[in-house]
Design a protein around this nucleic acid. Structure first.
Lengths: 355, 355
DNA sequence: GGAGTATGTTTGCCTAAACAACAAATTAGG
DNA sequence: CCTAATTTGTTGTTTAGGCAAACATACTCC
């Protein structure tokens, strides 16, 4: 339909690729399991005992993992050594928002060892956020022990991101367009920077550590103040699309309604399932998700209940489409969508089935 | 949401895997290109000259490819040897339908060397079709030269298929439910059988040889007499979903309309973009796609044009959702959807953009 | 026909995984 | 306790597949 780059790219594999693949496979298993025995690694990877030994040794040499003796023995035979991700490798997590910029430091083992949040002036530019982030990073770095090694920076952007070159294509709430956040932050900090959409990151997190752990096909829908973000895991990988703008499930049109969403599109999931609408009806302003949830679960007024049901129905319509399209093993709801689900999960499921 | 099998399966790689991968990569390139030089193979795979030499030799030894000298030299330097897929490896293609069963024989090089079609009694059972197919296969096999080697059977099923075990889950037009077509046909013919949804197969074909050649992200929508089939290529791979029922794009709901599709769902793309509706309006019965196309392109009556526009709009709504979700490089339309597109592609595109 | 160039071919090398044999650390069972 | 059985870690060797280098070959260009 439209002209595009032909990208066959079916590369061959050589020795180094194998080593790389196996190292990363082992490291991934170690990270995801928090701590795992060498024998479990051999079983999971199908590789030879001695190969695992070698791979783990290399990871240890590179400072990415540590081996310890098992605390409790789990049966007959010599107890297997336990492998854990290193505490000394840290990555920074950056989250630029309209009113604040947050930077966290996380170890490879998943522990958050620092977190700083700086309030921003109204509508900061991309450069403002970058500089704030860079300052926080250098501050946290200075406070870290000498033994810590910094792997890089991950940025969760509330908007469309071109992952390949780290450019924020469009972040409606921040008002940024085509901002080279990644390269610029990398310039400032001299660290590798990885940018991605916040919903996508949330999706991967849920899939790796959260409620969708281990599933290969997942649909993810998260509602916050800024609308509905979404994503999908297809065959174990994040759905990105050709240019990286795929998976915007909140912007899928589910009705002929002319109600508009935050990006100006009509009849989309985001337009019809709105946190703001409920807040207004409930006369809640600037409420947290917890407060909103309490109000929803205890709502008595027919008008309000009606509105909630309406949103549940819209959510169900959207979800049933996603089921048709993706045939997922799990659907993960986040933010106030959880509240909608809890309010009447039976109705939601019933409506999904009826479609 | 629903309990599912945890499938992490992050396997390690050993030497054999590499060889396998490289062999299949080379064979794929050879098949897709019809004929390709060894130097092109080295460039495309990134592998060493001597490695390609070795791989091609192995493919030749296994009877999967043949090497010939270049007919025309393409520049300075020693001319590279040309590699082509073997003509002696054939696969059978089976297509069971309500009124007929078709079997074709195709060489690895893509040439159709035999095709037989047998009319069936009204609504054949799965076993009927299997037996008919098996008979045709043994008949064609007998007629093939001794030098031909049979690789296996591929079946294109008009319905939901569980690819993993070759079971047809539900084929509405045939009225089959949970039919073990794959295993049974394999039993009858003593050949490996691969089953898949016909739309999925069409999708891969378009992507490999057709208009979407080489693209990694494609949305595919095909309309026939039996409704609208669809599929998607995500990151170079067919979208299947957890149980293999994904990608049913025709059954996606795009409107609150209560119009039902062939599977009884309301407001779906299939329910609103109906070939039958147009046929009826045009007073065409049992028309071919070509006849229908002629009538559509020359339609004058306002009522008919109105209906066509209506369908174009519905199609656009569906497509724009798919663009939001998949962010594809190309959209491939098939069957009478092509006619709708040609009737007023401007309107279609405009409507897609406006959403 | 010689220079230049790209490719095919052959040989030996290198590396990573596998394998085999042995050592070590545990449980089970008397 | 002591021995057998079992499982895992360790070490040295083997093997396979891709690579690099050196050389041979076939083409174009001048």
């Amino acid at each position: 339909m439209e002209p595009g780059l032909q990208t066959p790219a079916p590369k061959g594999q050589n020795r180094e690729d194998v080593r790389q693949h196996n190292l990363s496979t082992v490291l991934r298993l170690v990270r995801l399991a928090e701590t795992i025995s060498r024998s479990q690694l051999t079983a999971a990877t199908g590789l030879n005992r001695s190969t695992i030994s070698d791979l783990v040794a290399e990871l240890e040499e590179r400072g990415l993992a540590t081996e310890t003796e098992a605390l409790v023995s789990s049966g007959v035979g010599r107890p297997s050594l336990m492998v854990s991700p290193s505490e000394n490798v840290v990555a920074f997590a950056v989250h630029p928002e309209v009113d604040a910029t947050t930077v966290g430091a996380v170890t490879l083992s998943g522990k958050v060892i620092a977190k700083e949040r700086v309030l921003m002036s109204k509508s900061p530019t991309s450069a403002d956020s970058e500089q704030t982030a860079a300052k926080l990073i250098s501050k946290i770095t200075a406070e870290l022990g000498k033994e810590k090694r910094i792997a890089g920076i991950g940025v969760a952007v509330p908007g469309q991101v071109r992952v390949s070159d780290g450019v924020i294509r469009y972040a409606p709430q921040l008002g940024w367009v085509e901002a080279a956040f990644g390269p610029e932050l990398s310039q400032l900090t001299r660290l590798p920077v990885y940018l991605d959409n916040d919903a996508s990151i949330g999706c991967m997190a849920e899939r790796n550590f959260g409620s969708a752990k281990g599933f290969t096909d997942v649909v993810f829908l998260f509602a916050g103040a800024g609308g509905i973000g979404g994503g999908a895991i297809v065959d174990g990988k994040q759905l990105r699309g050709a240019s990286g703008y795929g998976g915007e499930l909140g912007h899928v049109r589910i009705s002929s309604s002319t109600q508009r969403d935050y990006s100006g599109f009509q009849g989309t999931l985001e337009a019809l399932v709105r946190r703001d609408d409920l807040l207004e009806l409930l006369k809640l302003y600037a409420a947290t998700d917890e407060e909103l949830d309490r109000e929803i679960q205890t709502a008595k007024q027919p008008a309000i209940r009606e509105k909630i049901y309406e949103q549940i129905d819209c959510l169900a319509d959207g979800l049933s489409n996603f089921v048709t399209i993706f045939n997922p093993q799990a659907i993960v709801l986040g933010g106030f969508l959880t509240s909608l689900f809890n309010f009447d999960s039976g109705r939601l499921i019933e409506r999904m089935k009826s479609n």
